[in-house]
Every structure is written in structure tokens, then in C-alpha cells.
Nucleic acid binder design. Structure first.
Lengths: 183, 183
DNA sequence: CCAAAAAGCTAATCGAATTAGCCAAAGCCG
DNA sequence: CGGCTTTGGCTAATTCGATTAGCTTTTTGG
């Protein structure tokens, strides 16, 4: 019988599909193995552990997110850029809630993740350079932007917003808050 | 030999201690049983499952948080009240990062949790009544406040903020954003 | 064509959750 | 007090997921 032809990336692909369809809690090695058509221990030829797989998934998500956000910022500046970045961020979460939720199971302190997070942070910082903020003020502003966006994303992805009012409007208000606080 | 004298509340107490000292990931039935001086299956006389224990922990945390926030709001109004509420919320997270992190492992959709979350939301809404917002606008404002505060809390509790700039200053900026966006 | 590396597999271990069924301690009532 | 019932704890046993060990076969390079 021929081989399954897996690879580390292939395993991550399967894991991503899994969290997309069944949610972040469904990310287990046996489920990944099953969906890849392979016995569980075989996965260890490609990833060291479940913890590492989680990290790889987080890495992938962080990269996808950074791409979207960077692209949104391109060619824009000032308030307009901030708006575009924040909308792009949320659109990713709306499109892939499971992936976003999967990130939260990973300790953010691992070096490889820190690097990817920096890429994302870089895109945000670039957008904030349009405002005349000195070094520390830039950091504070970036943290606030991140908090707002991440907080909304987490709550939305986990179904934390109950009421029927449209979330788009709430988010536009949040964007307004960030922008008005940046002046 | 005398009994251990456990109770549902006692089990939750032990669980809270555990997440306080060892982090949210350490919340397992065997660890709780161990720290309560009891065999694991004995816990089932007090809680139905690990999932239920998690819910009870979340419930406890939500209540503590709502208390702090409500108390902070008491006797204040307007911007002053918003500031106090936001600071009180963060102070809880700073005091008990493990407890806050433990909440995120629980699906927020369970009815008993929704009730407690409503209490917390109520405290927030009360503070926002000082601004003249109609019904939907009030909801949107509450969601934004919640997103900002929760986003910052999650990032801080999980060590997501790397740089050395003091977090207090970042948080004060966030408070300013929310307040300026509320006008 | 052959040897070494790579990718699968099965068998086995470990730890955590959960269930079943037994037994003693506490509380209650006469 | 004596007994009954409820309650809380225990041990044994099952299940499932992660992980390790060791074997086998495919691929690949020379």
C-alpha cells in the first residue's frame, strides 16, 4: 500500500480543517490522525507532540492574520488605515472563528510564536506611525488597539455576545473609540 | 477515620486555590482531589463532572468580579464611574490572573453562566446610563467597554504583553479611549 | 542494486475522567 | 439508646487520548 504522504504542513492543514469544522476543543491527535487517514502514532513522525501541533496551528493563524491586516493597511494612512486594519482583523475572525479560538489554548510565551506575533504587531505599529506618538506612547497605543480588537474577537468567536443588535454597529463604535482616543 | 467534610463549595474552593497557584491548565479532578485529601471519584458526590466544576469556578469568578465592579461604581457617575469600573475590573485580574484565565475554558453559553454574566453586564450598563444613549446605543457601548476591558485582561493574564512599558499607563490610555468614544 | 533515512504500523504504558458497586459515618426518629 | 436512611468516601474497572518503543516497508541517493 502506498504512503499517506503526510508532512508537517499537511498535519497542520488537517488540524486547521478540524478546528474550522468542529471547534478548537476538537483538536486532538487522534482526530487529526483519523482525518488524515493515518494511525495516531504516525503523527509523531511530523510533530513532536500535541503541544507543538497547537503551536504550529497558532503560527499559521498568526501568519494568515498578519497577511490580511498588512494588506488592509497597504496604501492607507491615519484614521483610514486604523479603520481598515481593525475591520480586516475582525473579518478574519468572522471567517474563521474556530481558528481564532484555537490560538487561545497556546501559551503565548514560546519564542516561535513571539516572532509571529511581532509580525502582526509590526503591521499595527506601522499604521500608528501616522499619528505623532513618541516611543512609549506608540507602545501604549498599540496595546490598546490590540486589546480592543482582541477582546471583541474573543467575545464574538466564543459566542459571548448574546443580544440581537448587529455586531457590525458595535464594532464600528469600537473603531471610533480607538480613533478618537488616538488624538 | 473521620470524613473529609467536603461540599460542592469546598470543591470549588480547592479548585480556585489550584488555579491561583498553578494556573488554569492545572485544573484537573485528580489535582483537586489530591489537594482536598480525597480520592478522585469522591468528587463526583459533589460535582457531576469536570465540565460542571469548571462552570462553578467560572460562576464564582463572575460573581466576585461583579461584586468588585459594582462596588467601584457605587456613588460615582459619568466618566468618573467608567474609570472606576474599568480600574476595578483590571485590579481583579491583576490580583487573580489564574482565576480569570480559568474562565476562558468554559463555554459561555450555559444558562447559569449567562445569568452571572448578566449581573456583571448590569453593573456596566448602570454606569453607562449617565450618558444619554438610547437602547441600542447603550448595548453597543456596553459591548465596546466589555471588549476593551476583557481584551486587555486576557492579554495581561496570559502574559501577552511583552515590553517593559508599564501596563498601568497603557490601561489609562484605554480608559481614555473608551470615555472619549462615549461622548 | 544496496544501504540508510523516512514514514507507517502495532503493542504497550501512563494519566485523567468517569462509572459501578461496596461500606462506614452522620443524622434522625422512635 | 438502637436502628434506618442518607451521605460521603473508597476500590476496582473502563475508556480515551498522549506518548514511547521497536518493527517493517517504502523511498531515495549513490
Amino acid at each position: 500500500m502506498p504512503r499517506a504522504g503526510l508532512s508537517p504542513d499537511g498535519v497542520v492543514d488537517a488540524a486547521i480543517n478540524l478546528v474550522d469544522t468542529d471547534g478548537a476543543a476538537a483538536l486532538t491527535l487522534s482526530a487529526v490522525a483519523g482525518s488524515a487517514g493515518v494511525a495516531t502514532p504516525s503523527l509523531y513522525k511530523h510533530v513532536r507532540s500535541l503541544a507543538e501541533l497547537r503551536q504550529l496551528v497558532t503560527l499559521r493563524v498568526l501568519d494568515e492574520l498578519a497577511d490580511r491586516v498588512s494588506e488592509a493597511a497597504m496604501g492607507r494612512s491615519g484614521d483610514d488605515a486604523v479603520r481598515a486594519v481593525m475591520r480586516a482583523y475582525r473579518s478574519y475572525v468572522v471567517d474563521h472563528p474556530g481558528r481564532y479560538a484555537a490560538m487561545e489554548q497556546t501559551p503565548a510565551t514560546e519564542p516561535p510564536l513571539a516572532a509571529a506575533a511581532d509580525r502582526l504587531l509590526g503591521a499595527v505599529l506601522a499604521v500608528l506611525r501616522g499619528y505623532d506618538l513618541d516611543g512609549p506612547a506608540l507602545i501604549h497605543a498599540a496595546r490598546c488597539l490590540r486589546s480592543a480588537v482582541h477582546g471583541f474577537a474573543v467575545l464574538e468567536a466564543s459566542g459571548g455576545f448574546g443580544l440581537p443588535e448587529p455586531l457590525e454597529e458595535s464594532y464600528e463604535l469600537l473603531i471610533g473609540m480607538v480613533i478618537s482616543g488616538l488624538r
